[in-house]
Structures are given as structure tokens and as C-alpha cells.
């Protein structure tokens, strides 16, 4: 029966993941239970922290970028000390040290962490899976133009590609260029143009025509 392994939708059934716990999964459960038993944390506090992490999304970063497009003073503060500037907008980004790097007519910035997968989670939420892949991490420092091309972004030869390898204590966000013909757009609408990928540097903000797409 050739179709035995297909679901009614025609797709293969996903394998069940009821395999034994790995060493590190067991370790995580043991540490978590000990912390709860000894009264350092409660299960509710852990759940709240997971909820807080899940609630963070690129929309937070998009508000920061949009604000920088309309408010030169804020932009100057952001480029000087991005962490303090984001806190001043009311974002709880924890102890994160943040640097904002600005795209210009001459420079295109892109972020990678070659050593692990450092990402400004406290501002952009959880990283996309590809950001953590060995391929993205190793190739972005060697052939960034080719990598960007695979994301659909061709950078002109006269524009410098500047890669930021997030190896240590800082986290990074790209300030993309403001799309053309958006001078009259209010800040809240501008924020809708700012994509996650444009803040990592593998994409550009949406065009005005894509605003409601």
C-alpha cells in the first residue's frame, strides 16, 4: 500500500518524538526541580518567564526603528547607547548590552554570531532557526553577498557590506534605511514596514505598496 505513510492531507505523518530524554534534558529537569524544591523559584515564576520570552517579538524592534526614522534626537541616542535608548521607550530588555548599526547609502550591515547564536532576544524575540544554523554562521563571514543573495537581497558592488560577528557581550540590531515615499507616514504605520530580517540585515523593510500586504 503506497499511501500507508501519508496523512489524509497527502503529507507524511510526522514521527512521534516519544524517545528517551537526552542527558541534558534530564539535567534541565533535575536542576529545575531542585530550584523549586529548595524554594529559589516557583513553577509559576518559571512559566511567567517563558510567557514573557514568548511575548517578545520583532514588533518591539520595529517600534524602535520607526522611532529612529522620525526622531533624529532618539536616533542619535540609539546610535550612542542602544540599550539605554530602548529602555527609555519602555522596553524591558533586561541587562542586555545593545549596539545599533545604521545602514546608509554606502554601507549595508548584517549580524551573525559565528561562535554560537547570540541574538537580541530581549528586543526581537526568539531567533529564526536559520540564524542558529552552522551554514549561516560560517558562510556569513566568508561570503556575505552570496548569503544575502540567497535571501533575495542583492547588494550593489559600490556598497560596503559590513558583517558584525556578535562574539562576546554585545547584541546588535540593524537600523535599515527608511523606505522611499514614506515622509508622510505616521510612526505606527512606519513600524509595520520594518521586518525582522531587515533588523538582522538579511532583508530590507517593506515598500509602501506592501504596507497592507
Amino acid at each position: 500500500m503506497p499511501h500507508d505513510h501519508l496523512s489524509p492531507s497527502g503529507h507524511p505523518y510526522r514521527a512521534d518524538d516519544d524517545t528517551p530524554l537526552t542527558y541534558w534534558q534530564t539535567m534541565e529537569i533535575a536542576v529545575r526541580e531542585l530550584l523549586i524544591e529548595k524554594g529559589h523559584l516557583s513553577a509559576v515564576e518559571i512559566q511567567h518567564q517563558i510567557d514573557a520570552m514568548d511575548a517578545r517579538s520583532p514588533a518591539n524592534g520595529a517600534k524602535v526603528v520607526a522611532k529612529s526614522w522620525v526622531d533624529p534626537e532618539f536616533k542619535a541616542a540609539l546610535l550612542k547607547d542602544a540599550g539605554s535608548a530602548c529602555r527609555s521607550l519602555g522596553f524591558d530588555i533586561g541587562p542586555m548590552h545593545l549596539i545599533a548599526v545604521e545602514n546608509t547609502d554606502d554601507i549595508h550591515n548584517v549580524i551573525v554570531c559565528t561562535l554560537c547564536s547570540c541574538y537580541p532576544r530581549n528586543l526581537l524575540g526568539l531567533p529564526p532557526d536559520w540564524y542558529k544554523s552552522r551554514e549561516y554562521r560560517s558562510r556569513t563571514v566568508k561570503e556575505p553577498r552570496k548569503v544575502l543573495g540567497e535571501f533575495g537581497l542583492e547588494v550593489a558592488p559600490n556598497i560596503e557590506v559590513r558583517v558584525h560577528d556578535s562574539t562576546a557581550d554585545m547584541r546588535y540590531i540593524v537600523l535599515p534605511n527608511r523606505p522611499p515615499d514614506t515622509e508622510s507616514l505616521p510612526e505606527e504605520e512606519l513600524a509595520k514596514l520594518v521586518t525582522r530580517d531587515s533588523m538582522i540585515g538579511v532583508g530590507l523593510p517593506k515598500h509602501l505598496s506592501e504596507l497592507n500586504a
Binding site: P144, R145, V161, V163, H164, M170
Partner: peptide, 26 residues
């Protein structure tokens, strides 16, 4: 902690994809 800017030319020599592109590392 110091942010250092390297050229692709310095890092990869003749294998560089675009020698004047740069990488900044802490």
C-alpha cells in the same frame, strides 16, 4: 572589550568574496 574592524582582504586574502567589505568583531 574592543570592537575591531577587519577587511575581507585581510581575513581571506585572495579567497575574499569582495576584498573591501568589512567584518567587525568584539
Amino acid at each position: 572589550l574592543v570592537r575591531v574592524r577587519f577587511t575581507m582582504d585581510e581575513l581571506w586574502g585572495t579567497d575574499a568574496e569582495h576584498p573591501t567589505d568589512t567584518i567587525e568583531v568584539e
